[in-house]
């Protein structure tokens, strides 16, 4: 599904990713943990193609296609989804038109017909229900005046609507109470169908109690320093990141 080889990337003059390797097969859930400043969010931005995040060397392919050669929207159309740590507010654009435009852009890229308004609304209602967002939120501006928890649930609702091949969840647990966390986790788990892959980026093990990963990787100072099964997350929970050798900590 996704293959990252020796990825180096920088923001302005600072190199943040320093030789990252990662291989994800269809249906797998990979958790990426690590201390603040390790490059966790940078990975999501680099993969999505955010301006200002420059790839110095290495390669990334999604289903065999060169991801780094695509524009931001082409990556999304190819099946990459990034759930933002801090979703953006767009007051003058309603959730409804935003999602409709987005869903139909994806469908067009897949060679499918655009959804009619009625079909779209039906799908949107179901997705809203799944993440426990009230329906009238569709009429409001994108993320406008949403609480932190509502914003995170909105990201998951978008993921459900867009049906990506690979979803990166960037700290989708930060700032959530246990109830909201469970709603988010339930939304994610409903999308695990054995084909769709996930990268779950998180600082804490807590989220992984609800979204059980196949693999856990520890990112430190721009590369993966340790990989293992779910038990690795528990280890981190117990002993923190202090065990990381000097020099591996950013």
């Amino acid at each position: 599904m996704l293959s990252i080889k020796d990825l180096h990337a920088r923001v302005e003059e600072t190199t943040i990713l320093k030789g990252l390797d990662l291989d994800i097969k269809p249906g797998e859930v990979h958790a990426i943990m690590g201390p603040n400043g390790a490059g966790k969010s940078t990975l999501g931005y680099v993969l999505s193609g955010r301006e200002g995040y420059e790839v110095e060397s290495g390669s990334v392919s999604l289903e065999g296609k060169d991801l780094l050669d695509m524009e931001v929207e082409e990556r999304a159309q190819a099946g990459l989804f990034l759930a933002f740590q801090y979703p953006v507010e767009i007051p003058g654009v309603s959730n409804m038109e935003f999602m409709k435009e987005s869903v139909n852009a994806m469908r067009e890229a897949r060679g499918e017909d655009a959804l009619s308004s009625a079909e779209f609304l039906k799908k949107a209602k179901e997705a809203c229900k799944q993440v426990e967002l009230p329906l009238d939120f569709l009429k409001r501006g994108v993320n406008e005046g949403f609480s932190g928890g509502e914003k995170k649930r909105n990201e998951i609702m978008q993921m459900i609507m867009l049906e990506p091949k690979l979803a990166i969840l960037d700290e989708s647990d930060s700032g959530l109470d246990v109830d909201a966390l469970q709603v988010v986790a339930k939304g994610v788990n409903s999308q695990r169908d054995g084909k769709r892959s996930f990268i779950v980026v998180t600082h804490y093990q807590r989220l992984l109690d609800y979204i059980e990963p196949d693999y856990v990787h520890i990112l430190s100072n721009g590369k993966i320093v340790k990989s293992g099964g779910p038990e690795l997350a528990k280890e981190v929970e117990k002993s923190g990141y202090a065990w990381l050798k000097e020099g591996e900590v950013a």
Binding site: S48, G49, R50, E51, E71, V72, E73, R75, A76, Q77, F81, L82, F84, P87, V88, E89, I90, P91, G92, V93, S94, E97, F98, E101, S102, A105, M106, A109, R140, G141, V142, Q158, L162
Partner: peptide
């Protein structure tokens, strides 16, 4: 906001139309 829209697969030209129009649409809301 533009980057956010692009990550949802919306073409740049269309995203600009939506954002620019959103600027006045906010008052229509």
């Amino acid at each position: 906001a533009l980057y956010y829209m692009l990550t949802r697969g919306i073409d740049k030209q269309q995203a600009l139309v939506m954002l620019n129009f959103g600027f006045v649409q906010e008052l229509l809301f």
